[in-house]
């Protein structure tokens, strides 16, 4: 495939594993997705699903001595997996940037925020200290920090959680990256502040035409901001579709299980929630067949030992809807209709 037809960010068959004393941890296995500039892809999954490791692999943040990475990560025509660490470092902070969950541990406590921001500028641009400082103050103003000139001279601990997250966003976006990865950017924040931050990311995204990969466990945020959704479970991508297909026509039993597990703010559909039984699998000891099989309420419909023993392939249902499941299509559609009907307020 030539570069002109390749998506802006194109992840192909990404696999990351870490050797540990307890055995090989298969953190991510065969994950593929793509995203264009200006779009938002949400990666959804529970703890241990491999969503953060995938993001770190894209950013080139996985220590190659500690983990094995295979597959391809194409950003704007360059394969990050095949690049040297030095070359990736040049891209990081300029072409691609990341926002982390906890702003306090991602900002240096000893340096003033203005200094930390101007350092980010000077690493990637040949500008004077004064120019870098001016850019830093300008960016702080753009992320909605009041009185940016004097705030630039404060330390991270003098700011509230929401303000620190704004500083992180300012630092991530100061070199106008074309790819922004936000790993649970609002999980540590209160809902009213979360709304402010999501709005800020969206407005900066449209200003800079940024591709955003948003990692979250909150389905409300997904419905709010995502164009496309990748659902991960046990290190695998189990379903991928546009946001409407995920919420109204999801077909993978895990995605449907997630939907039935969430209590809704706008309605109480039934007295009891319908949780997924059991616990997520250990990444050292993944089931040999479908990773979700031990918790799946529908695998008996497939019959035999197919679900237990065979890894399901990622099936393409339509142009942008993929699902990894052994159930036949009629069965999946039937289950999907049932579950989504109840989820969106219908009677069981």
């Amino acid at each position: 495939m030539s570069d002109s037809t390749r998506a802006f960010l194109d992840v192909r068959d990404l696999t990351v594993s870490f050797p540990t004393e307890g055995g090989l941890v298969h953190a991510v296995e065969g994950v593929s997705f793509s995203i264009e500039r200006g779009e938002t892809l949400a990666i959804v999954g529970e703890s241990g699903s491999g969503k953060s490791v995938s993001a770190q692999a894209i950013m080139g943040l996985i220590n190659r001595k500690a983990g094995h990475i295979s597959g391809e990560v194409w950003l704007n025509g360059q394969n990050i997996v095949a690049m040297s660490d030095d070359d990736v470092r040049k891209l990081r902070g300029s072409e691609m940037a990341m926002i982390f969950q906890d702003p306090m541990s991602s900002l240096h406590p000893f340096y003033k925020i203005g200094a930390q921001l101007s350092e980010a500028v000077r690493v990637h641009q040949k500008v004077s200290k004064a120019d870098a400082k001016a850019q830093a103050i300008d960016m702080l103003g753009r992320v909605g920090i009041p009185d940016p000139k004097s705030r630039a001279d404060t330390y991270p601990h003098q700011l509230s959680g929401g303000m620190r997250q704004r500083v992180m966003i300012a630092m991530a976006l100061i070199n106008s990256p074309s790819l922004l990865i936000a790993d649970e950017p609002t999980t540590a924040l209160d809902v009213t502040v979360q709304a402010q931050i999501l709005e800020l990311i969206a407005s900066l995204q449209s200003e800079f035409d940024t591709a955003v990969v948003l990692i979250t466990h909150d389905l409300g945020i997904v419905a709010d901001v995502a164009d496309d959704v990748a659902v991960m479970y046990g290190g695998r991508l189990v379903e991928r579709a546009n946001v409407d297909d995920i919420f109204y026509r999801a077909q993978m039993p895990y995605t449907l299980g997630l939907l039935s597990s969430v209590p809704r703010l706008d309605q109480v559909t039934s007295d009891r929630l319908d949780p997924i039984p059991g616990n997520p699998p250990s990444p050292i000891n993944l089931p040999p067949g479908c990773v979700f099989q031990p918790r799946c309420s529908y695998s008996h419909l497939v019959g035999g030992t197919t679900c237990e023993m065979q890894r399901p392939e990622l099936l393409q249902i339509n142009a942008d809807h993929f699902v990894r499941c052994h159930l036949d299509e009629a069965e999946r559609v039937r289950i999907s209709t049932e579950v989504t009907h109840v989820f969106h307020g219908g009677q069981a």
């Binding site: 809902v191 009213t192 709304a195 389905l219 945020i221 419905a223 409407d244 919420f247 706008d266």
Partner: peptide, 8 residues
Amino acid sequence: AIPLPDPD
């Protein structure tokens, strides 16, 4: 402020 898990 709480987004609903329902795009529409």
